[in-house]
Simulated assay, not measured.
Amino acid sequence: MTQPNSTQDCIVTFQSSHLALKAEQQLAQSQMSCRLISAPRVISSQCGFCLLIENQSSQAVFEALDSLSVAYSNLYSKQPRQGVNHYEKYR
């Protein structure tokens, strides 16, 4: 299990592509670096897109999403193990 304050890559999923694009813009304006990517197959994303936020603690990501009132579905940590990405869902 990932420590909540450790730095890692996080994946944020959304219910629509509109919400994903809006969140990307809001997070970028708040100086949190993120990229819109296709959702990995193992993660359910209703719109097919998600945000990748690299080298952040999950707590920092939760706080940024909450302070900006970003509507998101789920937050995952992305952890490479033996060349394969594994995803762990938070909350």
Rank of each mutant, 00 (worst) to 15 (best):
L52C: 12
Q46G: 08
M1N: 11
R91M: 08
R41G: 09
L75K: 05
S30R: 15
S38W: 10
L19C: 11
L36D: 02
V42P: 13
I11N: 06
Q29Y: 07
A23E: 03
G83V: 02
G83H: 01
L65H: 00
L21G: 15
I43N: 09
L52Y: 06
E24Y: 10
A23K: 04
T2I: 14
Q8I: 05
A23C: 04
S77W: 08
N74S: 12
P4I: 00
C34L: 07
V84W: 09
Q59A: 11
R81P: 08
S67Y: 00
L52H: 13
S30K: 15
I53R: 06
A64V: 01
T13A: 04
N85P: 00
E63A: 10
L19Q: 14
C10G: 00
Q8L: 09
R91H: 15
D9H: 13
Q46N: 11
P40W: 11
S58Q: 11
A23T: 05
F62V: 00
L19G: 07
E88A: 15
N5W: 01
S67W: 00
I37D: 03
T13S: 07
S69N: 05
H86P: 05
C34R: 08
C47R: 04
C50A: 14
Q26K: 15
L65N: 01
Y87V: 10
Q31A: 07
R81W: 12
E24S: 14
N85E: 06
C47F: 09
E63R: 05
K89S: 10
Q29N: 11
Q82I: 06
H18I: 15
Q3H: 15
V61D: 00
V70G: 10
G83Q: 03
Y87D: 05
S16F: 01
P80I: 10
K89P: 10
S38C: 11
R41H: 04
K89E: 11
C47Q: 06
E24N: 12
V42A: 13
I43Y: 10
A60Q: 02
A71M: 03
V61E: 00
L51Q: 00
Q59L: 13
Y87E: 05
E24F: 11
S6V: 07
A23V: 03
L19D: 12
E88Y: 14
T13Y: 05
C47A: 06
Q82H: 12
L52E: 10
Q26P: 08
S6A: 15
A23S: 09
I11T: 08
S73T: 11
L36K: 04
T13I: 02
Q29I: 02
V12R: 10
Y87H: 08
L27R: 08
R81L: 14
Q59F: 15
Q79N: 14
Q29W: 03
L68R: 02
Q56N: 05
S44E: 05
N5D: 04
C50K: 09
Q31N: 08
Q8F: 05
Q29V: 01
Q59D: 09
Q56H: 05
C50M: 09
S57C: 04
P4T: 00
H18G: 12
S33V: 09
S67G: 00
S77M: 03
L36C: 04
S38P: 13
F14S: 04
Q15D: 12
Q8R: 15
L19V: 03
C10P: 00
V61W: 01
C34E: 02
F49R: 07
L68P: 01
S44T: 07
L52Q: 12
S30F: 15
S69P: 01
G83T: 01
M32H: 14
A23N: 06
S6L: 09
K22F: 10
S44R: 07
G48A: 13
Y90T: 05
